[in-house]
Design a protein around this nucleic acid. Structure first.
Lengths: 332, 332
DNA sequence: CTGAAAGCGCTTACAG
DNA sequence: CTGAAAGCGCTTACAG
């Protein structure tokens, strides 16, 4: 028996009762007598009646759906943040639609346009790289003018007046650098594959501040993910290095590899601090000291913020900072 | 100016033209004169009119949305499969809703019930661990009876008559094992953290077949993700091992680590073959020989299958097998 | 060429 | 206690 789910109308014609009565009975309205209520509920159960969510959405103007617009999911930070978002949302009566922008501005704009009218009540977004460099934020303000809630996390645009969940990248890097300095590391290199992103810039600034404060000259190696290992290896051949801070997972693995190839010992000759998930850090050799961004917590906070914003319809925009912490393991 | 997007009704009252005319004009119907068409299109553009997707969905009975129900996204296989799904879907006029079951049967059932009535046209699912062990598949058959399309990938239930995209796990493992045997490895250990899953069982069978065929006695170490390293280390202390096959990312990293701790050389003393993403394999030391599942291709195929199934309303269920291939690198 | 009407599946104020 | 009616925003067969 293919075909759609049973509707109120069909139930009504089976029982010879009006649609309104059926609807009320199924909502356990006090207007309806227990006798008819029972008949209706029983039949509904028998046919496994489920209200059509689309119709309810049209009627109520609420969709109970939230869009999560992120660049990628093949990156442990976003994957785990998504997990944090999903965990909170699944405890509510909301659903999430996930859209991957692949760092494309056009895709991001299209996603916002596609979903803004009737499909979702709000957006959780980590702004893509291209949007950050083009500085074109109309798609965000447009949906907000149409009454949708927007919460940005991690990749945030200061000038857009929406909810924001960020991490203290600047401070985290500055502290990690200081920690290396205080354990007598002098030639500390920063290896970055995310220099185009605001988060990358923040982290770099934190590193620079600490290096300058300590009176050491900074070295910043920038590269794409694929070349990071080669770039690091090359540099190690010609320069003294006693510590590396790597700004994401790719850079972290590349740094470990480059040091091993160079024949130097970690952490004796070269200390390494990186950004990888806790589980992976634990499974690397040596176990990697990491800056832990608490991605789950960030996702959770963003989800909580948007649900609250949709429910209260409040215009007040919150800003939450989830502090990164240093998890010291064997590599430093 | 907060508030919702403009509607046909509002446009109609501004222009003094009927709603039907507006609707037709915006669909460029030949019924409408160019003059009125122009007026209407212009005003619509001015107000940035977007048809309400929910209303269109109610009217048409189609939602153009597909649910992707997977256990997790913090696993490079699912993350990349999702990427493959999203890539194909984003070229169509469909959207995807992503739901993470976290291996919970209850969550999976709830998701199917929640979304089956009006929210989505079909489901792409990788069946969760608990559902596999409980063998309760009613939620799948229920939605299919209600006319929804279902495609399973990777984690598949043979007895459910839906579309399926799988990989040849049995053969892949058997070939990888044979390859090790033919390069004179004799004490080949299988390290698994996924023995509860059908895919894990398939892989184990492939390994067993090759070991038995070669006349070697198999060793299967099963453990959870966190203990895998310790279990492997322990085994290495007391037994001769010259090769390890690890069945997922956690097991692969754990195997590399355990061998390094034991002081043995990879691949000279111990060869290692694992399951990790191509990018990660490249960044490990030594670069890891992997069984590549082509997760992107699998996701892509599943997405193509469901779109076709929804569009053609065909009852014929396809079964696609995407072959895994061995990517030989430095660890074997 | 334009518009009134019915309907998708629901909810709810209103009447009886 | 029950039901007819209006309406959410759209589409489309039908009438004019």
């Amino acid at each position: 028996m293919a075909g759609s789910n049973i509707t109120l109308k069909q139930l009504s014609s089976i029982l010879g009762v009006s649609i309104s009565t059926i609807s009320k009975a199924l909502k356990d309205s006090h207007e309806i007598s227990d006798a008819t209520k029972n008949r209706i509920v029983e039949l509904a159960k028998l046919h496994n009646y489920q209200p059509n969510k689309i119709a309810v959405g049209l009627k109520s103007g609420k969709t109970n759906t939230i869009a999560v617009v992120i660049p990628s999911v093949q990156n442990s930070f976003f994957a785990r943040a998504l997990y944090g978002i999903e965990s909170l949302i699944s405890e509510t009566n909301f659903n999430i639609i996930v859209c991957l922008t692949k760092e494309s501005h056009a895709k991001e704009v299209e996603t916002f346009n596609m979903l803004s009218n009737g499909v979702v009540d709000g957006f959780i977004v980590a702004v893509c790289e291209e949007t950050q460099s083009l500085q074109n934020y109309d798609h965000f303000t447009n949906v907000m003018e149409n009454g949708k809630s927007v919460v940005m996390f991690d990749r945030v645009i200061e000038s857009v007046n929406c909810g924001k969940v960020t991490t203290n990248d600047f401070t985290a890097l500055s502290e990690a650098t200081q920690k290396l300095i205080s354990s007598d590391r002098k030639n500390i290199v920063l290896l970055s594959t995310i220099h185009k992103l605001n988060v990358g810039k923040q982290r770099t600034q934190g590193y620079l501040k600490a290096m300058n404060a300590g009176g050491f000259s900074p070295t910043i190696l920038e590269s794409d993910e694929k070349q990071a290992g080669a770039v690091m290896s090359e540099y190690l051949k010609a320069h003294p290095v006693d510590a590396i801070i790597a700004l994401d997972t790719d850079a972290s693995l590349a740094a470990l590899k480059a040091v091993k190839i160079s024949g130097k010992q970690i952490p004796k000759d070269v200390a390494v601090i990186g950004y990888v998930s806790e589980r992976m850090a634990h499974n690397l050799t040596p176990e990697l000291t990491t800056i832990n961004q608490h991605s789950y917590t960030i996702g959770n906070a963003a989800a909580r913020m948007i649900v609250e914003s949709i429910r209260t319809k409040s215009k007040e925009m919150q800003q939450v900072v989830v502090s990164s912490t240093l998890s010291v393991r064997d590599s430093s």
